[in-house]
């Protein structure tokens, strides 16, 4: 920078400005994220939507669920899950000096056959979408997607994806009325105890009382298969 002094000062300022523009290529991108509930009788808890880069993973198959994911998948409360994403944002923001992550919650429950679209925006080149929503008539089942790459989506385009059912592995799938928070039972949501395998995996499905499990609070209408939901991501102006 010493060469900037004196007669070269003017051109150096131009160079510096040019560098700033190239070094900062993070025009904000705006997205609409829509989820359609494809189940028969499983309301979805408010969506947790996170746009991020590869420095963050909301869960990994075979690994222990975070406390935020446990809370979301057992009770439908997405606040801690989104806080964990924000903590990651803070760390990223310190390193990169610009936001590369955004997080947003849905407005409310998404009933079967209904959908909700939330809007969110983020900067950066690598843009991954993670999303989770509890099926409220389960012990700890959620529909979601982890690190769905939407970087190449152009303005006006959309991408669709079916959502798979995950099991947080933090609560045994007892299907007992006392442990199902949704309208099928009105039982307990979050419980700090982890009485299951304690790793995230695909959900095995629910048994229900019509299939020989007489203690189950669930009936035929609460059964589900993959996929449980349809995701549509649109890049908007």
């Amino acid at each position: 920078m010493r060469y900037c002094m004196g007669i070269l000062k003017g051109s150096c300022a131009v160079f510096a400005a040019a560098f700033l523009i190239t070094g900062c290529h993070h025009d904000t991108r705006n997205y609409e994220v829509e989820v359609v509930n494809l189940t028969q009788n499983q309301p979805f808890s408010p969506l947790a939507v996170v746009l991020h880069d590869s420095g963050y993973a909301p869960w990994t198959i075979g690994s222990t669920a975070s406390q935020g994911l446990e809370l979301l998948s057992e009770s439908g409360d997405n606040s801690q899950f989104l806080d964990e994403a924000a903590e990651n944002l803070s760390r990223e923001a310190l390193i990169n000096a610009h936001g590369r992550m955004s997080r947003v919650s849905g407005e409310g429950l998404i009933l079967p056959g209904e959908s909700e679209a939330v809007q969110t925006s983020v900067g950066g080149y690598e843009i991954l979408l993670s999303l989770a929503t509890m099926l409220v008539n389960t012990n700890d089942g959620y529909a979601g997607v982890e690190a769905f790459d939407i970087s190449d989506l152009e303005v006006g385009e959309e991408m669709t994806r079916f959502l798979t059912m995950y099991d947080a592995g933090t609560e045994g799938n007892s299907e007992l009325a006392s442990s199902i928070p949704g309208p099928a039972a009105g039982g307990e949501g979050f419980n700090v105890a982890r009485d299951d395998v304690n790793y995230v995996a695909h959900h095995p499905g629910v048994v229900s009382s019509v299939d020989g499990y007489t203690d189950s609070a669930l009936d035929q209408s609460h059964r589900f298969d993959n996929p449980a939901a349809l995701l549509v991501v649109r890049r908007i102006e």
């Binding site: 798979t164 695909h202 095995p204």
Partner: peptide, 24 residues
Amino acid sequence: VGDTDLAGGSSDLDSRIHRWLNPV
């Protein structure tokens, strides 16, 4: 299929544990 009777029933598998949904 499984069942929830660990001491008998029609199946030695647990319907709450040993079922799956594709893909595996």
